[in-house]
Write a protein that binds this DNA or RNA. Structure first.
Length: 197
DNA sequence: CTAACGATTCGCT
DNA sequence: GCGAATCGTTAGT
């Protein structure tokens, strides 16, 4: 049970990290409420040579600029005007890679998550999806650019290494042509906490 | 300044 | 299964 150091996000390829993050614990302490979940589903986005990435072709905009920072920062953006999607920036400065966290298994602060999601029962819909997990954990654009060892937002290695990991294509990236076929989505096979099979 | 759209979700059929 | 919701970001005028 230890906080993952920022160096972890800087020394490996984004696809390796996306897979390796499965089983790690994502924690927030926002509005005085501590919430944690085990990462069960991720996707890798690579700045160089991946048309699905916001930083494809070295594109730089006000929204994606944090992707060009050192690994270990958070990249949060609003999707469809409604959903906050949480990403983990990886690689060194000016290599704009990131991992999208798509689902978690709630383990701590479940009452708070239910309240934020306006639900009464714990089920898959609580946090299996990139928009819903952000809402459950209280993550929004105010957390854009935070380092992942901050008081509000961090990851822990709990020594859990999932046995069976599925690798498949990413969701909602049809616009990326051939790159939509890359097997850069990962999830824990036995987990119910997955957005889509 | 303005129009078009998105790494989604939810409710209704 | 399908379509609406909803608004910041983006690129083009």
């Amino acid at each position: 049970m230890s906080i993952i150091p920022l160096s972890y996000y800087r020394q490996s390829d984004v696809v390796f990290i996306a897979r390796d993050l499965l089983g790690k614990k994502l924690c927030t302490q926002i509005d005085g409420e501590k919430c944690c979940g085990i990462i069960t589903e991720t996707e890798a986005y690579r700045g160089w040579g991946d048309k699905a990435c916001h930083a494809s072709g070295n594109r730089r905009t006000e929204r994606n600029k944090v992707m060009y920072e050192d690994g270990g920062h958070s990249y949060v953006y609003l999707c469809y005007g409604i959903h906050h999607l949480f990403n983990i920036v990886t690689n060194v400065q000016n290599e704009a890679d990131a991992v999208l966290v798509r689902a978690i298994e709630p383990v701590e602060g479940i009452e708070t998550m239910l309240k934020r999601r306006n639900k009464s029962k714990v089920d898959k819909s609580l946090s299996s999806g990139p928009g819903t997990l952000s809402q459950a954990l209280g993550i929004d654009r105010s957390h854009y650019g935070l380092p992942l060892n901050s008081e509000e937002l961090w990851l822990e290695d709990i020594g859990y290494n999932p046995q069976n990991i599925i690798e498949t294509t990413r969701i909602g990236v049809d616009y990326a042509g051939d790159d939509a076929l890359l097997p850069w989505r990962f999830y824990i096979e036995d987990s119910i906490w997955v957005s889509k099979r």
